[in-house]
Design a protein around this nucleic acid. Sequence first.
DNA 1: AAGTTATGCAACCGCTATTCG
DNA 2: ACGAATAGCGGTTGCATAACT
Length: 233
Amino acid sequence: MVRPPQNEKPAIKKGPWSYEEDKKLTAYINKYGIWNWSQMPKFAGLSRSGKSCRLRWMNYLRPDVKLGNFTKEEDDIIIDMHEKLGGRWSAIAKQLPGRTDNEIKNHWHTRLKKRILVNNNSSVNPSSTKTKASESETSIHCEQAIQENSHGDFGVVIGGSTELNTSLSDMMGDSYHIFWKQPFLMENLSVENQQSEYAHSQFDTSLWSQGPMSPSSSSFINDVYSDILYNIV
DNA sequence: AAGTTATGCAACCGCTATTCG
DNA sequence: ACGAATAGCGGTTGCATAACT
């Protein structure tokens, strides 16, 4: 019997992402862009699959991702689009800038589907006043949430509030989309010929504090930014 | 207060589509 | 034209927490 080679590949970590992992991935992508998901984790110092990194970035870490409560308008769009397209979540997500297919899918399965069922039932049985009362209650809560969101207390928007939805790509301009030809290790970030001005020209930290962020809180983003500057300067 | 059940959501899995050599 | 690698999509699962008994 030949013992299969061990430790040929580093163990792929699964489960929830830690703060440190988020920092690493965000810092790496902010610095080098997305050049190859399957290779990136290795160079970013992450024990994750490329697939997992892509998902984490696309759904939560991307600067233009809008997290938090859905507005009534968004709900209406989702319901309408779902009627037309069914479970084509990515197509539906295209109609809702900042929302991800995964988030929309979860929102549908946990809230909207039930609401539609309730609506259908109440239209079949109009005497169901309690249902209607709770419906309007839900609607009020939704309105409140929207208002509170606009104050930045919760209802999270990464990279700014809805009004200040300045995406990282906007901040960085064309350089954000530059795809590097060679991989880069996070450990090699201290690039002598890159000036801090370069970094400042791409990031405006004041924008990070324009809205709360979760799980990537504003302090987290600031940490990432500090790390990048620290390594560059 | 403790145990149980329901809910919400992040993340995984498997499959298909697309790209590239 | 073909096969491998990679990206993307949608269904599903598992865990944390809230709500209920």
